[in-house]
């Protein structure tokens, strides 16, 4: 007999980690929409957020509610510097070159973190309430539940913000046609900057949540690979795709990890990735035209 309660718990845990994929995926999509850059360093920026939080909370002994904004600001700052220093000079170069710049960036960030904080995994100071949470009878680890809630709030804020704010319209216009957006008076360079700043801030914030659940280490950047799967499945330029894809991949990983073993997680998600690339290269929700990169 199948143990429904257990399945439910696995499912909920999957949703929990999936929400973190979703929020990082949304950050990824934001950058892609605005600048057409596939940012492979998103995992490393997320990692940097985790470490910044660690530095502020454990190093400077700041309370968590101060350390979290510090981490987000650190991510945003890195985003601003990277956009200005590395991405803007590559304007007009082939997307492949820019993609490889972000690979280099990821490498730099990973090395930097290792120099400052060492190569060993670290645990973030506890800052989330630890009272056990039950949904029905199913147990959910409290960190996972709070992570899920926080991630969902951010994703919702994003989707609403994009739909109803001036910035959202400017972003959509830029995404549709940079030159046309520029000619009707949209400050495209500012859209570029802001999207990197916001996205990297969000990714850093997600890094704090990821670190709170699983600890931090210089190899945390592999999280970015899962995010890559998420956004390809959802469609590179679709926020909704990132949300659905994130939750989906989170759940799939949870089940694969539970029933097949941890080492099957990547195999299963990347097999899904290959399948999607063969059948629907622009993802479930992506725009068809981006097939030609």
């Amino acid at each position: 007999m199948t143990d429904w309660l257990f399945l439910t718990e696995v499912f909920l845990a999957g949703l929990g980690s999936g929400a973190l994929y979703a929020v990082t995926g949304v950050a990824f999509v934001l950058i892609y929409k605005a600048t057409r850059v596939v940012n492979l360093a998103i995992g490393e920026i997320l990692m940097l957020g985790g470490y910044a939080f660690f530095g502020a909370a454990a190093g400077w002994h700041l309370p968590a509610w101060v350390a979290l904004p510090v981490a987000i600001l650190a991510g945003a700052l890195v985003g601003a510097v990277v956009e200005r220093g590395l991405i803007r000079p590559m304007l007009g170069e082939s997307p492949i070159s820019v993609f490889m710049v972000t690979i280099g960036l990821g490498s730099i960030l990973a090395g930097f973190v290792q120099i400052v904080w060492g190569a060993d995994p670290l645990r973030l100071p506890e800052f989330l309430p630890s009272a056990p949470i039950f949904i029905g009878e199913a147990y959910v680890a409290p960190k996972v539940a709070y992570g899920f809630l926080a991630a969902m709030v951010v994703v919702t804020a994003f989707v609403l913000g994009l739909r109803f704010s001036r910035g959202g319209v400017a972003l959509k216009a830029t995404a549709a046609d940079q030159a046309a957006a520029y000619s009707v008076g949209i400050d495209v360079p500012r859209v570029f900057s802001l999207s990197w700043i916001v996205a990297c801030g969000v990714a850093a914030g997600a890094g704090v949540l990821v670190g709170a659940i699983g600890g931090i280490s210089p190899t945390m950047g592999v999280f970015g690979l899962s995010v890559l799967v998420v956004v390809i499945v959802g469609g590179l330029d679709s926020m909704a795709g990132a949300l659905v894809g994130g939750l989906f991949i989170g759940v799939v990983e949870a089940f694969a990890g539970t029933f097949l073993g941890g080492e099957y997680r990547f195999l299963v998600t990347f097999s899904i990735l290959i399948l999607i690339l063969m059948v629907r290269p622009y993802g479930l929700f992506g725009t068809h035209e981006i097939e030609r990169l």
């Binding site: 590395l86 590559m90 710049v101 690979i103 280099g104 960036l105 730099i108 090395g111 290792q114 120099i115």
Partner: peptide
Amino acid sequence: PVRTIVFGALIVGFLI
């Protein structure tokens, strides 16, 4: 870690 950084910096530097 320095090696990792240098690799990254070489990629970025040459591309730019």
